[in-house]
Amino acid sequence: MSSARTVHGKVVVITGAARGVGAQLARVLYGRGARLALVGLEPKELAAVAAELGPDTVHWEADVTDGERMAQVADEIVGRFGRIDALVANAGIATGGPFLDADARTFDRVIEVNLLGSVATARAFLPKLLESRGYYLQIASLAALTPAPMMAAYCASKAGVESFAHALRAEVGHRGVAVGVGYLSWTDTDMVRGADEDTVLRELRARLPWPLNRTYPLAPAVERIADGVARRSAHVYAQSWLRGMQGVRGYLPSVVGGAMGRREMRRAEPGLAATASVRRGLVGAGGQADEQAQAHHSSQ
């Protein structure tokens, strides 16, 4: 890797770093010589990742929706490392199922974490990146490129963070900060495995056209994200075919919301009705951790 495309010696902050994409990205960037600040809700898991990577990796427990805490963490990271060169806003949660069946608090929490949590993260860390003329990578999703039934909260939040990051790029580019958006399709993480525990949702996804119906391995997806961090890329595609989706994204709402969508929802309706009572919470281990943290906070 050339000196223009290296993270060696750079200080990189990753939110949502306890598991999945965040934890694997920490491993890859550490292997490339980065110094890492890991931020997340799960202290034991964060500590385990940090211990695996060594003394140049430090972790902070924080809820990304807590602006005061995120600002404190940003100051502490600069105090520990002297600067911040890159920030990967990766923290995210998901829920699935029909909008009208959704628990309102769970639905709203997805928007809060994925969109407003990214806003709070940017508010805390962009001043530090202005000082270093650094790089901000916002992790979005295939869900930002195409709507999907049963994923209204996730799609809305990811479309929101994509647009938010594009707006930031225009605002801070002349001051030396590069802003990128990262896109992933269904990738083998706790979140996706948790979503697949729902039989109806899993069968709906299996009926999607290729390549949308595949679950992609984590390691190569994260290698591409790490390459994007090193290059300070404006767009980072964890699966190469996602680049092609940009050219057709304007047509997708009509396709998804047209005859195909109506056909698939009609087919799924009996199964959805039979399982509505169990489809209420956040999916995956990360979602469970967020629910536990919220319950603990409410009890105090």
Rank of each mutant, 00 (worst) to 15 (best):
Y154L: 12
Y154I: 10
Y154D: 06
C155R: 00
A156H: 07
A156S: 13
K158F: 05
G160D: 01
V161I: 15
V161Q: 03
E162N: 10
E162A: 09
S163Q: 14
F164G: 06
A165P: 06
A165C: 06
H166T: 11
H166A: 14
H166I: 12
A167N: 15
R169V: 07
A170N: 13
V172A: 08
G173Q: 01
G173T: 01
V177H: 06
A178W: 04
V179Y: 06
V179W: 02
V179R: 01
V181T: 15
V181M: 06
G182T: 02
G182N: 04
G182R: 02
Y183A: 11
L184Q: 08
L184T: 09
S185W: 01
S185M: 09
S185R: 02
W186L: 14
W186G: 04
W186Q: 12
T189Q: 07
T189N: 12
D190L: 05
D190N: 09
M191A: 14
V192R: 07
R193F: 06
R193H: 10
G194Y: 01
G194H: 05
A195E: 13
E197C: 15
T199K: 05
T199Y: 00
T199E: 14
V200A: 07
V200H: 03
L201E: 03
L201M: 10
L201C: 03
E203D: 15
E203N: 11
L204S: 05
L204M: 15
L204H: 03
L204C: 02
R205M: 11
A206L: 13
R207Q: 15
R207T: 13
L208A: 15
P209Y: 04
P209S: 08
P209D: 11
P209V: 10
P211I: 03
L212S: 08
R214Q: 02
T215Q: 07
Y216M: 11
Y216N: 09
P217K: 10
P217F: 06
P220C: 08
P220H: 06
A221C: 10
A221E: 02
A221N: 00
V222M: 10
V222L: 09
E223G: 05
E223L: 03
E223C: 08
R224L: 11
R224M: 08
D227K: 04
G228K: 01
G228N: 05
V229Q: 05
V229I: 11
V229L: 09
A230T: 00
A230K: 02
R231W: 11
R231C: 15
R231G: 14
R232T: 07
S233M: 01
A234Y: 01
A234C: 01
H235F: 14
V236F: 07
Y237K: 00
A238D: 05
Q239N: 10
Q239R: 11
S240K: 00
S240C: 00
